[in-house]
């Protein structure tokens, strides 16, 4: 149907319009390609120069490395606890997402399924958290974490990320769960299923795309966050990769080839993962965005 519509539009258009359309099409590609280059150029330049030695970085920044020099990478691997930092980031990000999905889904289900005293109040209470950044409560959060003896642990990070992530998750899941047909749930109830079973075995599988969207929503910001690791958990053993990079970039500021190597090392896993999953990621973001 779209095809016929296009065809009709084209045949009915006069010749000048066709030319203009072709020019417009060319312009479209020019703009997209130019902006793509702007997006890629800095990243590519850093990657390329990370394989040069110090002098070459300065003398010929635009040339390809010749020969390939790995001294920067050797320096970085000799110093930094990269593997541990990665483990910490992975643990924090995954646990946060699991907590957000589980608790978010439970709360969203309760709010969308049952009419109870305080339902509306709770919905508004949670919604308020969508727009207010938890960062503004830093001073109190540090005090709180100290009181709870959680300061300096990965647990502290997870709790803050999960708490801050709940509002938007509840919001997105709420609207998806609302769309699950009532007949399905009622049929399960008639069969004697408990409310817990209905949520976990019937509704959750049905809103899987929404769960994926929520996961995608939190993955990047949590992984990339600098503030909370900086102020809540900057100790060596609990350092996340993002904070870790900022520390060893600081250490290598007088050695540009090591500096470029550490930046490249930090980028590569993210870029590779992104290249593999960009489709899912972008779809998830768009779906979440529509619900906003």
């Amino acid at each position: 149907m779209t095809a016929t519509a296009t065809a009709r539009a084209q045949t009915s258009a006069p010749a000048t319009s066709a030319l203009r359309q072709r020019l417009g099409r060319a312009g479209t590609y020019v703009i997209l390609i130019v902006y793509s280059l702007i997006a890629v150029f800095p990243v590519a330049l850093i990657l390329i120069n990370s394989f040069k030695d110090k002098r070459e970085v300065f003398s010929s920044p635009y040339s390809l490395p010749n020969p390939i020099n790995m001294s920067g990478y050797e320096t970085v691997f000799g110093r930094a606890n990269v593997i541990r930092y990665f483990g910490n980031s992975l643990a924090v990000t995954l646990t946060t997402i699991i907590l957000v999905l589980l608790f978010g889904a439970m709360a969203a289900y309760a709010l969308s399924e049952y009419r109870f005293f305080g339902n509306r109040f709770l919905a508004i209470y949670f919604a308020l958290g969508i727009m207010i950044p938890v960062r503004l409560g830093t001073v109190s959060l540090i005090r709180l974490m100290k009181t709870l003896n959680l300061h300096g642990t990965l647990g502290a990070l997870i709790l803050v990320y999960a708490a801050a992530g709940l509002p938007i998750s509840i919001f997105i899941l709420h609207s998806f769960m609302h769309d699950v047909p009532r007949e399905l749930k009622d049929a399960a109830r008639v069969d004697g299923a408990s409310e817990y079973r209905i949520l976990f075995q019937l509704v959750m599988p049905l809103v899987r795309p929404a769960l994926a969207t929520v996961a995608v929503f939190h993955m990047i910001p949590v992984w990339n966050d600098l503030w909370w690791p900086l102020v809540l958990a900057s100790g060596e053993s609990v350092r996340t990769i993002t904070l870790g990079i900022s520390w060893f970039v600081g250490q290598f500021k007088t050695d540009w080839s090591a500096l470029l190597a550490s930046l490249s090392l930090a980028m590569m896993p993210v870029l590779i993962l992104y290249a593999l999953f960009s489709r899912q990621l972008i779809r998830g973001l768009s779906e979440g965005a529509v619900k906003l």
Partner: peptide, 25 residues
């Protein structure tokens, strides 16, 4: 003993933040 330096200009703020969080070196 592991030597873990921070950039000169950021050392004091980061150290303070780490100590407040109970994670200082």
């Amino acid at each position: 003993v592991r030597f873990e330096p921070t950039l000169n200009t950021e050392y004091d703020a980061q150290l303070r933040a780490a100590l407040e969080a109970g994670t200082g070196p």
